[in-house]
Design a protein around this nucleic acid. Structure first.
Length: 494
DNA sequence: ATAGGGTTAG
């Protein structure tokens, strides 16, 4: 950037600045790294062109000052500079609410001659980004020319708004696919927890050799392996990353660290952490969470303290990680202090996960009253996890009345929610009040509550095995039950 | 002569 400033100074000294394309080139270049400097160049230009505005709006679209896009567009039009087709893809990217996007979309339609496939794909991307996926679909359907980018935009948009079937349909029907569209498809499946489908498609891609898996795709697959604990599969990706000689950078190293930690190889994760030259807040958070979920709670808390002294500024996610460690050690006061510190020192508003951790800590340690007060005080609607912690705490500390009251109130609040019946029923079952369990089950049938059961899974030799509660479908269910009994006995004797 | 869209780690 300093060099760029020198060049800029020189163009002014030797009089080159009057050649507008030289100044424009400087502006475009600096808009990528120093937006304020780029804006100064625009302000110093006597007759800014459409090139200058387009470059500057693009620059702002990549910063947090999104609102500058519309502002510059207005200023540009006041200066009687007409926008062209290249103005809109970048302007659309700076729209931070649906009303400004609708307004910009209106301008595109009104001008007519600026509507092209770049504008279409940007509109699809931005409408779905702002949670208006129906409008994205509408733009897509009304467009006469749909290229691979438009289709990919819509696939991502559908996936991010829960429209899984629609995303698959667009992918199946698109005439041409490249590495980015495969990447979008597979990462969308992973985000929607359709891991088997994602791995199937990845395998198909590798075997067919249609397109080469790119860096984002390999990172997505690695993350998916971590989420389902697929150690061997993930190790393969690790090797592939080495073979592809992608430069091992912050993102890849952090993804690897997180993957090994999630698969239980905490030593390997620590090894990567220690060897990393550049670590950012995601790296630290990942390591703290890895230690906490692997039972190394003291180390997690120690690492967090080290981070506050000489590491990057923690985020909301870092605090979740250290709260998990506190939870495992029943450090009620310390957890409470951390949440206070998070808000007062770091200005981070507690989210539902932070409240969730705290309720769980209270409930586990038997402070059910504290947990109840917190649930009533929290500014958002408590979710399943929070009520689950509370009910479980009521049960383990024999606070049956409190649990019963909470469970009943929950069902009244949302009679169509199966989890609320199941939570209370599980509590009755554990204390042997079977008549109440049966009553709740009947109530669910009468009220036609959708009761899709929960499930868990494990990957063995590349196959994901899925289990429901009391599921007897697995071919080796007897062996599995026998092993479970042995494990239960072992943990009882400890 | 200069300016545009889709996939990516906690």
């Amino acid at each position: 950037m300093d060099q760029l400033k020198q060049i800029h100074a020189q163009t002014i000294t030797i009089g080159l600045a009057r050649f507008t394309y030289i100044t424009s080139k400087l502006l475009a270049f600096s808009a990528m790294s120093d937006i304020d400097y780029a804006h100064t160049i625009l302000n110093q230009t006597n007759t800014p062109t459409i090139f200058d505005y387009n470059s500057l709006i693009l620059g702002y679209s990549k910063t947090s000052k999104q609102e500058m896009g519309i502002l510059l567009y207005t200023q540009m039009r006041n200066n009687r500079i007409e926008p062209n087709a290249r103005t809109f893809p970048v302007l659309i990217k700076t729209c931070d609410c649906i009303s400004s996007l609708l307004q910009v979309h209106g301008h595109v339609v009104k001008l007519g001659n600026v509507f092209d496939v770049y504008v279409t794909s940007s509109l699809i991307y931005m409408y779905s980004n702002l949670k208006a996926v129906e409008l994205a679909i509408q733009v897509f359907e009304e467009s006469s020319y749909k290229n691979v980018v438009c289709c990919t935009s819509l696939i991502t948009g559908c996936f991010n708004n829960g429209l899984v079937d629609e995303a698959c349909k667009v992918f199946d029907e698109m005439p041409e696919r490249n590495d980015v569209s495969y990447s979008a498809m597979i990462s969308g499946l992973v985000r929607n927890e359709l891991f088997n489908k994602a791995f199937e498609l990845f395998l198909h891609l590798k075997q067919s050799g249609l397109v080469k898996p790119n860096r984002p795709l390999l990172l997505t697959i690695l993350t998916a392996c971590g989420k389902i604990g697929a150690l061997d599969k993930g190790k393969n990706i690790h090797h592939q990353l080495l073979e592809e000689s992608f430069t091992f950078d912050l993102e890849i190293d952090t993804a690897l660290l997180d993957f090994y930690a999630k698969c239980g190889d905490i030593e390997k994760a620590e090894d990567i952490f220690i060897k990393m030259r550049y670590k950012d807040v995601a790296t630290w958070s990942s390591m703290i969470m890895g230690l906490a979920t692997n039972g190394r709670n003291e180390s997690a808390i120690k690492l967090f303290e080290e981070m506050t002294h000489k590491g990057p500024v923690p985020t909301d996610i870092t605090f979740i990680a250290v709260l998990v460690a506190c939870n495992h050690k029943s450090l009620v006061t310390q957890a409470w202090c951390l949440i206070g510190k998070m808000f007062k020192v770091f200005g981070i508003q507690p989210g539902i996960e932070h409240y969730g951790c705290m309720v769980d800590i209270f409930a586990r340690s038997g402070q059910l009253k504290g947990a109840e007060i917190l649930i009533n005080l929290m500014p958002m609607e408590p979710d399943e996890a929070i009520w689950g912690s509370f009910l479980h705490g009521c049960l383990t500390h024999s606070e049956i009345c409190l649990g019963e009251r909470a469970g009943k109130r929950l069902i009244e609040l949302d009679p169509s929610h199966s989890g609320r019946y199941v939570g209370l029923a599980n509590m009755y079952a554990d204390i042997g009040r079977w008549e109440n369990v049966i009553r709740l089950r009947n109530m669910m049938v009468e009220r036609k509550v959708d009761n899709t059961p929960s499930w868990s899974f494990i990957e063995v030799d590349g196959v994901v095995h899925k289990f429901f509660v009391h599921d007897q479908f697995h071919p080796r269910v007897n062996d599995l039950c026998e092993i479970l009994q042995i494990l239960n006995k072992l943990s009882m004797n400890q």
